[in-house]
Nucleic acid binder design. Structure first.
Lengths: 205, 205
DNA sequence: ACACCAATAACCGATTCGGTCAAGTAATTA
DNA sequence: TAATTACTTGACCGAATCGGTTATTGGTGT
């Protein structure tokens, strides 16, 4: 594994992205080490030189993604935001940015949730626990509902926004390129529209 | 192919679902005929007895899905609905119902959009054209916007609902069972909330 | 007892699998 | 420059799997 870490940052990223993409697309069993090597433009032998085995590579990717998720956590610092829509917007922006910088991480993480291969079943626990606690931190708070014309609308609107987020993710999953700013603007405008129509007049700054 | 058509309806569906699921999950190249045979609880030899070759099986599935989509078209008869939300609700209900009855069809169709295998590239044109014209029929009409407090909100709200639909699809993709009525109720409530907050008073029946 | 037929176990050559290794090449050291 | 070291990879391994074929099986009707 030290062999891999000693590579240039660019080469490491090329290999990581190739592996994330292949595992994300095919799943553990159907993704072959050769697939990944070809996508990374290196020899299959080097892959084994760097990671030892297919399983060790997969585990490395799991831990790598764990780090990425933790970074998203930190940078979003949701605690400071008092408004529901601001919190949703901030966390979405962080998610989208990291998705932009590391296009295959999200695809890989999504695939992990559907992974059923017994060979890596033991290793899967690592990621799933982390990911769950993410949403708990930005969960709807009691005071959020008070800003709504109909406070009982707060929860459904929150759920709708989560749903839209999954919609965006599905729409751009596997797309090799997309305009980050356009999508983010789109989402921001949608949030503004919802806010304008659901909030009491007094909370429309 | 006549061999396959002569089977009991139940056995045919078991085989179709197995094939849709495997191709949907793995893509054309990575899904093996053996995977499908095992999932369908029949021998691999029978698969070739029924369909001749892997490619012919895939093409059969494409045409089968085309039929399913056409049925959804017919049953929804969107022309009769004058209200935007009613049209969205009706088409979503149809989509969800057929998703419920034939759980792997949607997964397969989704995968077709990402299919890159050259071996079936020629056959893929069949489905993609059909699917595109689907949304054109329920596209936002001019008169829909007039019901909104802010007519310029109509288009974004329509886009948001499409996005939510993709979100639902992504959330339940690959789930082997889910409560159809619960999900549909959820969506229906969301639509009611949007309607109440976005429509002018006079259009709230 | 026979003929018929759908289903499959066993098999085909070819390819690919995860993984190894020795030869080649570039970079370092002396 | 010669020797040494570190890195990369083409060629290779046995085993498994690939798409596809064939010979045998067990069941059914007569």
């Amino acid at each position: 594994m030290e062999k891999f870490l000693a590579l240039t940052e660019e080469k490491k990223m090329t290999i990581l992205n190739a592996a994330l993409q292949c595992f994300g697309k095919f799943g553990y069993e159907k993704a072959s080490v050769n697939d990944i090597a070809v996508a990374a433009h290196i020899s299959k032998a080097s892959m084994f030189q760097y990671f030892g085995s297919k399983k060790q590579l997969y585990i490395y990717l799991l831990e790598y993604c764990k780090k990425v998720i933790e970074e998203i956590f930190e940078k979003a610092h949701l605690d400071s935001k008092t408004d529901l829509f601001d919190r949703i917007l901030a966390s979405s922006r962080m998610e989208m940015e990291s998705f932009q910088n590391q296009p295959f991480t999200l695809q890989f993480i999504t695939s992990v949730w559907e992974e059923t291969s017994p060979e890596v079943a033991d290793a899967l626990v690592i990621l799933t626990e982390e990911a769950c606690s993410f949403r708990n931190d930005m969960v709807l708070r009691e005071e959020d509902a008070l800003k709504f014309k109909n406070p009982e609308d707060a929860r459904p609107v929150f759920q709708m926004l989560l749903l839209m987020g999954e919609g965006y993710a599905a729409r751009y999953r596997g797309a090799n390129a997309f305009d980050f700013e356009t999508v983010m603007d789109d989402f921001e405008k949608n949030i503004a529209i919802l806010r304008k129509n659901f909030y009491k007049e007094e909370y429309l700054k």
